[in-house]
Simulated assay, not measured.
Amino acid sequence: MRHEPQRDTSRGNLLTDSPELYEARFPDPERIAGRWAEDVLRRYGAGPRVLDIGCGTGRDAAYLHGAGRTVVGADLSTVMLEYAREHHPGPEYRHADLRGFDLGAFDAVVCLDSALLYCHTNDDLDGFLTSCRAGLAPGGLLVAELRNGAFFLGRTELLDTPTVDAFSRHGTVHRSTTTLSLDRAAQLLRRRRVWSADDGSPPVEQHSAWRLLFPQELRHFLTAHGFTVLGLYDRPGPRTEPPWRAGDDAATTVDADRLHLVARLTG
């Protein structure tokens, strides 16, 4: 429901070059991601100042703004930020890299749709958490939604076999063929995606990757940066099947392919 990697991919990345295509490919008409984030923030008593880091097209930041919060949406893609300002006004949108940022003081940092996993190295992750700690008020919350590295321990059903998706925008059908593979040495889940369209444009091949973080590894990093983990569970959430609905209770398992994290700055 959000954008591609947390790096400026303004050349050769179909979706970050064309945010309206991103929203067509990943529609969220019920604003499930924003509603889930707001539910977590309310449940854990977060204050009104929220940073949505890796905000993409701004849908979720705008939802949180509409819920009465003072929101800054930050992203590394200038194209996404321009789109967000025009189509999802309300928040203040700022250019920033999640691996190191200084955007003011907040009561909560929200990082959805695996944006955190574009921290590919330990230094990247330390930079993100150091920035969160510096920007959060005492007792502030970190809320994240991401892929679960533990899911890929012994499981291969999502790997090495191409999957094909298609959607239509203004009469043009866009198709993507996506293949996921593991880079075990780097602890990365790599994605190769080839886009094609029926308008005669040439195919576009894109490569990206997510860091695979395991639950205990994630707890260790958070504790080292002064956070106490309040919740770490696999479902329900905005990208699970079935997706989160208001009133759902969090599971106590961390076995499925998504992780949902709630941590409080206490150190």
Rank of each mutant, 00 (worst) to 15 (best):
S176I: 06
L142K: 10
V173C: 05
G73Q: 05
R147K: 12
V173Y: 00
F128E: 02
L158M: 12
F152G: 13
A134I: 00
G139E: 07
A166G: 07
A96H: 05
L76C: 09
A105F: 06
D123A: 15
H88I: 13
A137T: 12
C119I: 08
A108F: 03
L159P: 04
L158V: 10
T172H: 03
F151H: 02
V71D: 01
G73V: 00
D97W: 00
S114P: 06
G135D: 03
L81P: 01
L142W: 11
A115V: 11
D102I: 11
D102K: 04
T156E: 07
F101A: 02
V109P: 15
R169G: 01
D126S: 09
M80T: 07
T161R: 15
D165G: 06
D126N: 13
L117M: 13
G139R: 08
L129T: 05
Y118V: 07
M80C: 03
L125M: 02
V173E: 02
Y93F: 15
T163R: 15
E92P: 01
M80K: 10
A150H: 05
H170Q: 11
N148D: 03
L103R: 07
T121S: 15
G154Y: 10
V79H: 03
L81A: 10
L136H: 07
A108W: 09
G135C: 01
G90H: 06
Y118G: 04
R169E: 12
C119E: 02
R175C: 15
N122F: 14
L76W: 09
H174S: 13
H95P: 00
L141R: 00
L116E: 13
C119N: 08
A134E: 11
A137W: 08
T177W: 09
F167L: 05
S168R: 14
E92W: 01
D107V: 08
V72Q: 01
E86D: 14
T177F: 05
V79W: 02
G73T: 03
E82P: 07
T156S: 09
V71T: 10
D102L: 12
C111K: 01
A96T: 02
F106P: 12
D165A: 14
D126Q: 09
D123W: 00
Y83P: 03
C111S: 07
P162W: 12
D165W: 05
E92Y: 06
E92I: 12
L125C: 00
A84Q: 10
R94C: 11
S168N: 11
D113A: 14
A96D: 09
R99D: 05
A115C: 14
V109I: 15
T161L: 12
G127P: 00
E92C: 07
E92Q: 09
S176Y: 04
P162A: 08
N122W: 15
H88C: 10
L112R: 01
D97A: 03
E92R: 08
F106D: 08
H170V: 04
D113V: 12
T78W: 09
G100H: 08
S114N: 15
A115K: 06
G90T: 06
L136T: 04
H170Y: 04
G135R: 08
G171E: 02
E86A: 15
A144G: 06
F152C: 14
P162T: 08
D160R: 09
G100K: 05
V143R: 07
